[in-house]
Write a protein that binds this DNA or RNA. Structure first.
Lengths: 260, 260
DNA sequence: TCGGCGGTTTGATCCACGTCAACGCCTCCT
DNA sequence: AGGAGGCGTTGACGTGGATCAAACCGCCGA
């Protein structure tokens, strides 16, 4: 399981960083043992025999059309979901209508862990493009991870990584200025695309400016202005949702240098 | 395990709310089976026999003097810690010196789960008053939770609750104004003190204004002004770190009503 | 081809919170 | 007891990002 797959680009948040090993994502198959996302998923490091057991665990697939919910806040929690392909956002809503995007998830990442504590989901998961997930019934995961030590360990790591990720975002929301936040966001996206075998320098954002803003605690206009500013300074080239990073080091400088 | 023990006072974040049952905290003993924090801890719902096994798990105690570290970012991760008594903060640091308080923890809560993902801690845990923790060696917890289903389930819930809590704070940091944040903070503290058998209306804050500010993404002056404002409006009575809540409903109104 | 529409960009203005500074109160140490 | 230093409060002022508003762009369906 690649520790840096979803890490925030703030070195101090995860001291032991490993190099990112891109994986081939082209030919997706059915079984976990054949899945190219294995290295990013719960299956990392499992032997043949255990993988077979695990395949019984992953009951079914679900296709989620763009714009529709994988699950909603308040729904009964029954399963986790491993993303096979596609792109999701999760958000929480307040009664007064305000909402907050709590994350963007891509292939190989696990959705639904918020539901364990209350036995019902506490946030919404919405597909930002046509997607496919593996359904992992939670009670089966628990019983199987009592048998397979590696699976148990992986699962704990995935949950812990989510906690560390959230701390990174709290840091971002609590003490960074707008351009630092956007820089952190772009570097994080870049790193995650790279870990999946895509270009680290050129990618297509699936979310709107408003969704980015909600995630980063900014208004969409501020996000747009920051994009424009980065473009003026030659750090990136933006064309709507298409992003080309021209100067990764420059972005990192903005992030680290306090830029006062 | 009381689901609301550390919940944020935003109803929508945890739909299934139970009533808070205060527990008696006066006479602390040695073994888990005798521990009055049992209902808040990993031991919830365990039978006699399993409790005995668990007691072998909790190897030792550690006393942490006020102002000193329980663990530091970068240190090897080996154990979780259950707080027996006292009060902690956790924070993350950036190279440029900025830091962010990621949480305040009190009796019955579990510290150290951030360390699982990288096998080293990613934040600092510092005692805000003389405290005592139970050391739970992580490898033992894993092996024991392969034997004891309830323990496994509790542990997963504790981790998931941490994730849900973090989402609540992201919501707070991303889309609330200063007085809403402070109101949420006070209500959260009140609820947690109550769940531990203390007054929900009157308590002593262990942290400084600066630490509250860091947690809430505000400067200490803003925190101080918000306290004063609440006092003027008759919502609370503040005297340094001593807080008396006079109008809980009023605070909730500030939190929910968007107060624009 | 055209119009409509959601998303984006950009400008002008406003305001909540940050910053800087002065001062007073507790707490702790000697 | 007395002094020092950390912490908290309050005021004056500055500013980053929110808000309001207008125009623009690309896409889709008629």
């Amino acid at each position: 399981m690649d520790q840096t797959a979803d890490a925030w680009p703030c070195e101090s948040l995860c001291v032991a960083q490993k190099t990112v090993v891109p994986i081939n994502i082209n030919s997706l198959r059915t079984a976990c043992s054949q899945c190219n996302l294995r290295e990013l998923c719960l299956t990392y490091g499992l032997n043949e025999q255990d993988l077979e057991k695990l395949e019984s665990l992953v009951g079914s697939r679900r296709r989620i059309r763009r714009g529709t919910h994988l699950y909603r806040a308040g729904e009964n929690f029954e399963a986790l979901y491993a993303i096979r392909s596609g792109f999701f956002k999760t958000d929480v809503l307040l009664e007064d209508g305000r909402d907050q995007v709590t994350g963007f998830q891509m292939a190989g990442e696990i959705l639904g862990m918020d539901g364990i504590s209350c036995e019902s989901h506490t946030c919404n998961a919405i597909a930002l493009e046509d997607s496919e997930v593996c359904v992992i019934p939670y009670s089966l995961l628990e019983s199987l991870s009592r048998e397979i030590e590696t699976l148990q360990h992986n699962f704990h790591k995935v949950m812990s990584r989510e906690i560390v990720r959230d701390h990174g975002i709290m840091m971002l929301l609590g003490s960074m200025r707008a351009e630092e936040r956007l820089s952190a966001f772009l570097l994080n996206m870049s790193q995650r695309f790279q870990a999946r075998g895509y270009s680290e320098a050129e990618f297509h954002l699936r979310m709107t400016r408003e969704e980015i803003g909600s995630y980063l605690g900014l208004k969409l206009e501020t996000v747009s202005r920051a994009f424009s500013r980065f473009q003026e300074e030659g750090l990136i080239a933006v064309q709507q949702k298409h992003i080309r990073i021209l100067d990764i080091a420059g972005l990192k400088r903005i992030l680290n240098h306090q830029a006062i």
